[in-house]
Amino acid sequence: MATRGIDFANLSLKDALDLAILIEDEAQERYEDFAAQMDQHRTPEAAKFFRYMVENEAKHGRELTARRLQLFGDAPRSVTPAMIFDVEAPDFDAARAFMTPRKAMEAALASEVKAHAFFVAALPALKDVQVRALFEELREEELEHQHLVQIELAKLPPESGLSEEDFVDEPAPQ
């Protein structure tokens, strides 16, 4: 997780909302990519879970976009996707062929923890009262998302003891 060139101290509410939308967009796109990877690598259950996450991220993105349009209409965006990296999107190396649904959920949980940490870390630098309120709200939402994933995790049967590595080919002698 990283950011580039964000001036938190002078962040306006419009910019904060745009950043939050970008964060959801990035996470949605990553889960879409993960779902496609799982389909290609015959890991349908993880793909199904990642699609569920796509829906979740898309829903949050739509809510934030509606709010942004209501408050600021079509005012040009001054933050760019290059400013945020993996704030809520799972790390690229979090996906593995043949990963179990539990591993997929753990990857999502780690992402929600990461996103929560981002909002917690950003809060002290924020000066605008409305921006601060928005970030506090987003921070609490991340906690809620963690809770939801934990509920799903608790429903899963115990793991078989096999790891995804057990399904991967060893280098073959030539």
């Binding site: 496609a36 990877q37 290059a82």
Partner: peptide
């Protein structure tokens, strides 16, 4: 936007690559 440079082709690299 970064998405403007992303094609419709899905990478077939190993997940995690």
């Amino acid at each position: 936007q970064p998405k403007d440079y992303k094609s419709d082709l899905k990478p077939i690299w190993c997940p995690g690559c």
